[in-house]
Design a protein around this nucleic acid. Sequence first.
DNA 1: TCCGTGACGCGAT
DNA 2: GATCGCGCCACGG
Length: 330
Amino acid sequence: MFVGIDVSASRGLDLCVLDSKRHVSLLLKARDLETLEPILRQFPKTTTFAVDAPSTPSKGLVAGKEHRVAEHELRKLNISLYFTPRSEDTSPSWMRAGFALYQLLDSMGFPVFGGGEAGSGLTIEVYPHLSYVSLTGDKRGSASKVEWSRAALRRSVHGLPPGADQDALDAACAALTAWTFVNGRWVAYGDPVEGLIIAPRPKTELGRVTTTGLNQLTLDIETGSAPRAIRSVQGSSFADRVASLVSQIPVGRVATYGDVARWAGNPSAARAVGSVIRNRQFELPCHRVVDNRGDPPPYPPDAAARLRAEGVGFDGSRVALSANRWQGPR
DNA sequence: TCCGTGACGCGAT
DNA sequence: GATCGCGCCACGG
């Protein structure tokens, strides 16, 4: 289940629920958080929430600026958005309402996604305007904002009431973005420390950051290096990220191709991970990367024996994944 | 460019 | 389970 929430101080909160087929199953407005809370508590643990509001105040990672890394990156792509101040107290009321919402969701067991593995049971920050741009590939032509929004959602969201206003559309857009997140069709902007903004993966390239963005950030997490305002290693390729990740799998642990793909920032590129590893087989501990069922790789020929020697537990000819799977960088 | 190629993953049978 | 089909995607020729 995918829940999008549009936060506004004056007009209240709009909530949209999408099922796995992206059909609107619920669309409502709530006056405030107290009104919404009992409804939120009814969603199952596998729900993914998407909130249209900043998840955290700025921490000053962008040198000399107040706004967050995500806002800095998006502005470079010509997408304007709210600037989040350094302190919660100086934030506008709708932002404070948003912070409270994230806090509530966290207490209910839906923490904010901070990099790493995408999936359900999380809360993501979204920015509907950005999602519309990703979906349509344009920056809104002559159409009015509502028309543009509705058109952007038409192909992807089913059962949207014709009378839906901008806030409702934004909530639906947020829910759709949650769907793309769980289904591996997303990109992230920003820095995990200052909040990641998730958007559907654009059909047309918005800018270089979209493709190199996530992994860079994943690498920053994994190396434990201090977060940088703007990732400096522009050149790091998917292959480099894969190599870096594989080389970090500890002795006695394994990862799946899919795991590596997710950590490298491209959840659906498991297959490509295989080809990258093959190209660099001699420089990597590639016996520690197994497939989804735990079958060891074809190279090196003694992969299984090596894993046993490292203490990895087996179930027949397959690695017992649940007990030996590496949890990933940080 | 464009196109074929896998050390994948998932759902259906 | 075991297989199969099909979608995915970074690479390289």
